[in-house]
């Protein structure tokens, strides 16, 4: 039996879909069978980011309403052995499925897959409640911005209230130069408020935008720090103690971060 991980944030546009695609592809590259579920009904993106849009026949809503079997709706990603997508419907809205249906679908997927990763829509309303319904654990994505961290905090409170305790944090779009100049929250500022375990830090990287537009997850690229960050996150999900990336070739930083992860 596999496990279901929801990727959520509260605030929109912080990188949930990017993280879902890259963590999913990363876990598949490490030899695991992964199903990605796009729970952002009405604003589906994950299929585009994965370059699978033109292969959609059935979607999540069709499965929930019994219009097709789960297997018929799953799209196999030919580039990553073991990676599958259950796309969202584009022409419906969040009320087209309910938490009970989501729970059943995740349960069903867990029988076949090692990891079921749910891409949560922004916000804390029904789309959020649907996305977390079948989850065994949660990853919260934030950017180093006050508003994003505030929303992450709100979401962590809601996850805890729903019994999803100790979510893990991904800080996305960090710009070491801005942090150094004091123009951006640093990792410690964020962890000080959120008080959760850090799963990884992904730097700002233009190539993410390029790869997103091309429909190719960046995770397989060799000379990108963001790709390496996502590969490391995937390995940490498997329980490997991978030290945090040194985003700035600054020894002190690395030591400090290691300490936070409890590895040093």
């Amino acid at each position: 039996m596999g496990e279901t991980i929801v990727i959520t944030s509260g605030k929109g546009g912080v990188g949930k879909t990017t993280a879902t695609a890259n963590i999913g592809a990363g876990l598949a590259l490490l030899g695991h069978k992964v199903a990605l579920v796009d729970a952002d009904i009405g604003l589906r993106n994950l299929d585009v980011v994965l370059g699978l849009e033109n292969r959609i026949v059935y979607d999540l809503v069709d499965v929930a309403h019994g219009h097709c079997r789960l297997k018929q709706a799953l799209i196999r990603d030919k580039r990553f052995e073991g990676l599958y997508l259950l796309p969202a419907a584009q022409t419906k809205d969040k009320t087209a499925v309910n938490p009970e249906q989501m729970r059943e679908i995740c349960q069903e997927l867990k029988k076949e897959f090692d990891y079921v990763i749910v891409d949560c829509p922004a916000g804390i309303e029904q789309g959020f409640r649907n996305a977390i319904a079948g989850a065994d654990r949660a990853i919260v994505v934030t950017t180093p911005e006050v508003a994003a961290v505030r929303d992450a905090d709100r979401v962590i409170g809601l996850l805890e209230a729903a019994g999803l305790n100790e979510p893990k944090l991904v800080i996305n779009r960090l710009r070491p130069k801005m942090v150094r100049q004091g123009d951006m929250m640093d990792i410690e500022d964020i962890l000080d408020i959120l008080a959760v375990d850090l799963l990884g830090v992904v730097p700002e990287d233009e190539r993410i935008i390029v790869s997103t537009n091309r429909g190719e997850p960046i995770v397989q690229e060799r000379n990108s720090l963001a790709a390496e960050a996502f590969r490391n996150i995937s390995r940490r999900i498997l329980g490997e103690p991978v030290p945090l990336l040194d985003l700035e070739s600054n020894g002190n930083l690395l030591v400090r971060l290691r300490k936070m992860l409890g590895l040093g």
Binding site: R150, D151, D153, R154, I156, G157, L158, E160, I193, A195
Partner: peptide, 24 residues
């Protein structure tokens, strides 16, 4: 416990919190 953004507490009396009260 820590009170996170969006959580609120009213009490008729004194309140002692073993944790943080976060922004929001």
């Amino acid at each position: 416990r820590t009170l996170r953004s969006g959580q609120s507490l009213f009490y008729d009396g004194n309140v002692v919190i073993l944790g943080d009260v976060n922004p929001g």
